[in-house]
Design a binder for these strands. Structure first.
Length: 444
RNA sequence: UCCACAGUAGCUCAAUGGCAGAGCAACCGGCUGUUAACCGGUAGGUUGCUGGUUCGAGUCCAGCCUGUGGAGCCA
């Protein structure tokens, strides 16, 4: 009985008789010779059937095979330079598990994005999409490994929350035994409590935003890892972030070099430059550079997009323009206090600036990490709650953290989908997960 | 929410206001080295919806719906 192997391990079994279990990805008939491309979730391999080498019933079964039929194929595995991937299976036996119906919707040709998203449940079978999902899994594992190996403790914070963690964002409302509750958009405030119990912590899970954002960088449900560290300043935080992000990129290149190059078609030369230290620029210096670019831009439409009002937050075009000035991810720090969340610490002697930092990925991918140092004093926080028009009552537990042993502490959130999009070089975050939730789209 | 573009066969797209078309997929047949094979054949249509202009509308006009790109919103 031949051993059942997965296609990714084919090279180790050359010269042996093996069984593959999977689906027919494509077929090319050449008269009394058939090439069947079979995929099994780990890869695709070419199998070849010769009429004279198999029993008649096997040949007849293969004649009727439709795209995506499920099969168990047995044969001799050998290296063959003519086959894509370099290995090929000479079929001796073939069992059809299930004949797929005629007219499988996803063809091996160009399709529109709208059509593909309608058929996302089938689209993920294609090698490129499957490769992206495997890379996502590696990114998530790398995130966990680095944090686990660097003194962080995982804490699972609630997804159902009693009120807006921050008042500004639109949240998904759920019915909680007759009371109003919301799906979490961040575990950060809870993490600020957790660090006083455990030291450095991180939470990792889905977060939800009900905003009407219709861009290549936004989903309504996305995954975010949020580390939080006590006795940590903004400057300490940047060092942690650059080590963390560099490790993730390095692990992905190491494990998925071939998939990145051939299936995802990513030019990995820019990824290979990702190593500490990352360039750092203050918000005010960044704004100066943006004004220079604005003045130098001759194309009126592009120029308009680069317009920046004094003290405004950067929009997507600004982030893109800035990140394109550098080869590595770029830290932008000390954003205006007014455009950041209420809990940000302010800069000593310049309260209009916050001890915040965003990490902008290269090649125009924009913000992949946002974070900063948290305000330490009760008084400042109460004042900031007022400025943001937030009631104090729901935040009493949060203010307790400053009343009982407050310390300088910092943290950040890294968006998984944006990180996958950047590392894979994708034009849109909709391909970074199996079933993305987007504005007013919830099928399949 | 705003701006722009698009909607024709299962898919990707053609068609000056004048007979509704091609490639791919499907189906039938051929081919021993194909790589989204190739060759021959068959079948496939409420031109997004509603109304209007016109002798005549896929084409022009209005509204709506859907999709895509961008902006805004967005720790």
């Amino acid at each position: 009985m031949a051993e059942w192997i997965r296609i990714k391990d084919a090279a180790q079994h050359a010269g042996k008789s093996v069984t593959l279990k999977g689906w027919l990805y494509n077929r090319t008939d050449k008269g009394k010779l058939k090439f069947l491309q079979v995929r099994d979730g780990s890869g695709v391999i070419q199998t070849v059937l010769s009429k004279k080498d198999v029993p008649d019933e096997v040949w007849e079964a293969a004649e009727k095979l439709t795209q995506e039929s499920s099969v168990e194929v047995t044969g001799n595995l050998r290296a063959d330079p003519r086959a894509p991937g370099g290995h090929e299976l000479s079929v001796t036996d073939l069992v059809v598990v299930n004949y797929a119906q005629d007219g499988y919707p996803i063809q091996l040709k160009e399709h529109g994005v709208g059509f593909l998203m309608e058929h996302r449940h089938l689209w993920i079978r294609t090698p490129r999409q499957a490769a992206i999902l495997r890379i996502r899994a590696t990114i998530i594992k790398s995130i966990r490994d680095w944090l686990d190996n660097n003194g962080f403790t995982l804490v699972d914070n609630p997804i159902i929350t009693p009120a807006a963690v921050e008042g500004t964002t639109t949240l998904f409302e759920v019915d909680y035994f007759g009371e109003s509750a919301f799906l979490s958009q961040s575990g950060q405030l809870y993490n600020e409590a957790n660090i006083f119990a455990l030291g450095p912590v991180y939470c990792f899970g889905p977060t939800f935003r009900a905003e009407k954002s219709k861009t290549r960088r936004h989903l309504t449900e996305f995954w975010m890892v949020e580390p939080e560290i006590p006795f940590c300043t903004l400057e300490d935080l940047m060092e942690i972030e650059e080590k963390f992000v560099s490790y993730i990129v390095e692990r992905v290149i190491d494990k998925h070099r071939e998939d990145l190059i051939h299936l995802v078609e990513r030019d990995i030369s820019s990824l290979e430059k990702v190593a500490p230290p990352f360039p750092r620029i203050s918000y005010e210096d960044a704004a100066l550079k943006l004004r220079e670019m604005y003045n130098a831009e001759s194309d009126l439409a592009k120029r308009e997009l680069l317009f920046l009002e004094e003290g405004d937050d950067f929009g997507a075009p600004h982030e893109t323009a800035l990140s394109k000035l550098y080869e590595k991810p770029l830290f932008v720090y000390h954003y205006p206090t007014a455009v950041k969340a209420f809990y940000m610490e302010t800069v000593e002697g310049a309260p209009h600036l916050s001890r915040s930092v965003d990490l902008l990925a290269p090649e125009g991918y924009g913000e992949v990490v946002g974070g900063g140092q948290r305000a330490t004093s009760v008084e400042l926080l109460e004042q900031r709650l007022d400025e943001h028009g937030l009631h104090h009552d729901p935040y009493q537990w949060y203010l307790d953290l400053r009343r009982y042993g407050s310390v300088p502490h910092s943290g950040f959130g890294l968006g998984v989908e944006r990180t996958v999009a950047w590392i894979c070089g994708l034009p849109h975050v909709r391909e970074t997960g199996a079933f993305p939730r987007m504005l007013e789209k919830i099928y399949p």
